[in-house]
Nucleic acid binder design. Structure first.
Lengths: 215, 215
DNA sequence: GAAATAATGTTGACAGTGAACACATTAAAT
DNA sequence: ATTTAATGTGTTCACTGTCAACATTATTTC
């Protein structure tokens, strides 16, 4: 931890890296600029040479979260154990997996502590978020090519819908609003996710165009 | 603000009420126990007689948020201006309306500052949240009765899916991830929401039973 | 290569915060 | 009426984000 030279050399990355760890250990409330400076072996004022304020540091940590979320989703896409799943199922599982393994990081990314006004759409946070979103859009295009998803709807719309659903599902799960057995018909999380996914694919509207009844 | 008697009398409610206001003015970061005590004209230690700590106060404010969210949804349900909309559209509009008019309150309710572990499912927060959720479930049952929603799916499942979607949509909207015109085909928020809603009702799966091609 | 300049880190201070303690005042119960 | 519980006060502590003045080093420029 202790360093020889007066300058740290890689303080910015070190702060973000320790931020990710501290977040996992102490949660969002436990994340403090001073603590991170201490862990980096640096004075409390040093971080201000790299970040305008504590929120900017939190934004950088959140941006790193989006990068990792994207990596997790891509890894899940390539996981041979999930070969039987459709691309959209796989990427959704990646999203959920990240949210559940790094709940505090996930919450920070969307907690409003970050990016309150979209005045700076060029921020690293926005870019990292859009990159993750792009992975989802790419997956949808691929699913359309494979004939797994309706091809007559714009990928962007489909991406908005699927991201909205999976994000809401993850958030409500983390917040504990989907746990009680009273409301769910005693399903495990995987079963519930699966049921929802099937329901979405099918649509929940009344079957207004009565298909030729199978029987 | 100043009071005559030594005891405040309704400190708890006063703190929560001022909390809602302060939240709207200063955002989540600006919400502090001491400031609320000051606004209530009371010493910094007084709130601790009513709340175990600052987080418990935040939870009470969040619970109040769920109560108001439920009220907003019910009001939207009854709004005569929206008579042409289906019940699910109306309640979704109520949800979005609350999220956009009280973004900080909405974020607090799901920000993880609140209810980290579901060890206390009896908390007021959980109860208020479940009451809001119940309004949604009721609406779905009603929509099923009206034949607007597939009746062969459990209302609980439909409620999970619709709550997940609308919550995710609201969150991404607030976080600014749905704004850039690059990704959306230049739609207004209302148009986007409408397109998503239609898409969900129809389902996004490949039309496995190909309708007679129009041309 | 030496000097000027920019980048980066330090020290010390300040106000604001959550929290705890002993104590004061009032309401409620006996 | 007296005891007891509930509620509010004053004070203190450790911690936090932030800043200004200063110190050290890296980088550029002559």
């Amino acid at each position: 931890m202790a360093r020889a030279s007066y300058h740290h050399g890689r303080l910015r990355e070190t702060l973000v890296a320790h931020g990710v760890l501290l977040l996992a250990q102490k949660g969002i409330e436990g994340l403090s600029l001073r603590t991170l400076a201490r862990k980096a072996g640096v004075s409390p004022a040093a971080p201000y040479r790299h970040f305008k304020n504590a929120q900017a540091l939190a934004e950088a940590i959140a941006a790193e979260g989006f990068t990792r979320l994207r990596s997790t989703m891509l890894a899940t896409m390539a996981d041979p154990l999930l070969a039987g799943r459709t691309p959209l199922e796989r990427i959704g599982m990646g999203y959920l997996s990240f949210a559940q393994r790094h709940p505090d990081h996930f919450q920070l990314m969307f907690s409003g502590r970050v990016c309150p006004d979209p005045g700076q759409p060029e921020s690293a946070l926005h870019q990292a978020g859009q990159a993750a979103f792009q992975a989802l859009t790419d997956t949808i295009v691929e699913a359309q090519r494979q004939g797994l998803v309706a091809a007559d709807v714009s990928p962007a719309e489909l991406a908005v819908v699927s991201w909205s659903f999976i994000h809401g599902f993850a958030t409500l799960l983390l917040a504990g609003f989907l746990d009680p057995q009273e409301l769910n018909p005693g399903l495990s999380q995987a079963e519930l996710a699966d049921a929802c996914q099937k329901l979405i694919r099918r649509g929940w509207g009344q079957k207004s165009t009565p298909k030729p009844r199978r029987r």
